[in-house]
Design a protein around this nucleic acid. Structure first.
Length: 443
RNA sequence: GGAGAGGUGGGUGAGUGGCUGAAACCAACGGUUUGCUAAACCGUCGUGCUGGGUAACCCCGGCACCGGGGGUUCGAAUCCCCCCCUCUCCGCCA
């Protein structure tokens, strides 16, 4: 969410940035509703002032112990006069009541519309983000690692893992429909090893590991920017008014919502391993093969809650990017980093780096990580604030990045570590997490 | 699921119809005192929206907010209704 004052003063900029992001929103209507809201509020405030002041007078005139009453008596007014005055004032206020009620009825829907509209205005992209229409216009920032060549015909991860008996897509679909799977045996252990290794790295780097709810309230989804626009992407448990999160970013970022932190508490660095649920609505027919686009996966996520300072935000953005790069380097996977263009940025993101890991079967880099910086966008929605040394309150800045998401990361991992005989070598860093297992062979 | 208690400012907690946006205490911040620490004393100390003046940091007003939403009343933290949440006991399950 943006500051309404900022929107009022930068209408054209806000409009343009929405166009650049390919997000439709009605800024003109917002300006209109805002004006109306302020006009009505002022009228209403005027009436309320009168009701308060005159109402108090009634009370004082009716109270023989009050100064007002004594003063009136001193001025020679009779008991009857005083009571008559009170009754008169009261009668006037009774006449005002319907006017107040009418204004209140008018302002209610306006306020509601105002709030709804505010939620649809995207965060303008940072100058550092390239302007572009979609992911084809993202700009490569760097490439790390060699793309290996095989001296045999490599298998894709589905073939490979199915042959090894560590992946069962058919029965996953039987249990839960398309885009589901079952990892078994060493496949399950490999999946968990990647997650555990990554989490340990984050803990070593000072991130507090958390176990968080993955079924959260509406406000938490809206606060992080996933609702209302992304509603169709979430699994809703409507009976309980809760939604399954698509990422632990949601509960982590909202953890301190509605609170005022101390500046000395910042930055707050959190990470969480959680299951992620995604409907993938509108993705029908896209990436239907294998473990790339699935409804349920596990992910270690990192979140930084930072002070309201653009330079620091940029610094932390680099930091969370580096953390994830280090995970890929530890795993020995070749990847590249792209600066995501405006057309591919989400609602609240000012800037985003995606990390794409080389996936032989796709003959391309595939997105495995997404490092976003939001400035105040999420914090405003969440009322996530801190008090500085001068006791002034500011909204925090928030950032997040994938540490590792599995099984998607198993696609490059399995494919790149496969051997001619159909076995897979376990990367060294993962072996301690797999009881020393060095090698996955046919069952 | 049943019974009871309760939700008030950063915290504890008073307040049952009227100068109460809210006592007191604690924490925090500023100051005095001080060889250091500590203590004592004085002062400041909610948030949001909004109007106006100098408009960067500032100053003066208005309104809203005492879990949420409705209602009664000239006037509601205080009375009534609905909902949510927390705690305790019982039951049930692990």
């Amino acid at each position: 969410m943006l500051d309404m004052k900022f929107i009022r003063e930068n209408v054209e900029l806000v409009k343009k940035s929405a166009v650049d992001k390919h997000i439709s929103c009605d800024v003109d209507r917002l300006i209109e509703v805002d004006q109306k809201r302020r006009d009505l509020q002022q009228q209403l405030d005027g009436f309320r002032t009168q009701v308060r002041e005159d109402g108090q007078r009634v009370g004082l005139l009716r109270n023989p112990k009050s100064d007002w009453y004594k003063r009136a008596v001193a001025e020679g007014k009779s008991e009857a006069d005083i009571q008559a005055e009170a009754t008169e004032v009261q009668a006037e206020l009774t006449k005002i009541k319907p006017k107040v009620k009418q204004l209140e009825d008018e302002v209610g829907p306006i306020l509601e519309e105002f709030e709804q509209l505010m939620l649809t205005i995207p965060q303008p992209a940072d100058d550092g983000a390239p302007v572009g229409k979609d992911d084809t216009e993202n700009i490569e920032v760097k490439k790390v690692g060699e793309i290996p060549t095989f001296d045999f015909e490599p298998k894709d991860h589905v073939q490979l893992a199915t042959d090894l008996g560590i992946l069962d897509i058919e029965r996953g679909v039987k249990l839960a429909g398309s885009r589901n799977y079952v990892l078994k045996g060493l496949g399950c252990l490999l999946h968990q090893a990647v997650l555990r290794m990554s989490q340990d790295m984050m803990v070593q780097r000072g991130f507090t590991p958390m176990t968080v709810p993955v079924l959260v309230r509406e406000q938490v989804m809206a606060g992080t920017g996933y609702f209302p626009a992304g509603r169709d992407q979430a699994y809703l448990c409507e009976r309980d008014e809760l939604s399954l999160v698509g990422t632990a970013e949601v509960p982590l970022t909202a953890y301190y919502a509605d609170e005022v932190l101390r500046e000395s508490d910042l930055p707050i660095k959190l990470c969480a391993m959680s299951t992620c649920f995604r409907r993938e609505a509108g993705a029908a027919g896209k990436d239907t093969y294998g473990l790339y686009r699935i409804h349920l996966f596990d992910k270690v996520e990192q979140v930084i809650i930072a002070p309201n300072d653009i330079e620091q935000s940029k610094k932390y953005h680099d930091e969370i990017l580096q953390n994830s790069e280090d995970v890929l380097q530890a795993l020995g996977l070749p990847y590249r980093v792209v600066n995501v263009c405006t057309g591919d940025l989400g609602m609240g993101q000012a800037m985003k780096y995606d990390i794409e890991t080389w996936m032989p079967s796709r003959e391309s880099y595939g997105e495995t990580h997404s490092a976003s910086r939001f400035y105040e966008f999420q914090a405003r929605r969440l009322k996530l604030r801190y008090r500085d040394g001068a006791k002034k309150i500011h909204f925090c800045h928030t950032l997040n990045n994938t540490v590792v998401a599995s099984p998607r990361i198993l696609i490059p991992l399995l494919e790149l570590y496969q051997n001619k005989d159909g076995s897979v070598t376990v990367p060294e860093v993962l072996r301690p997490y797999m009881n020393g297992c060095e090698w996955i062979g046919p069952a």
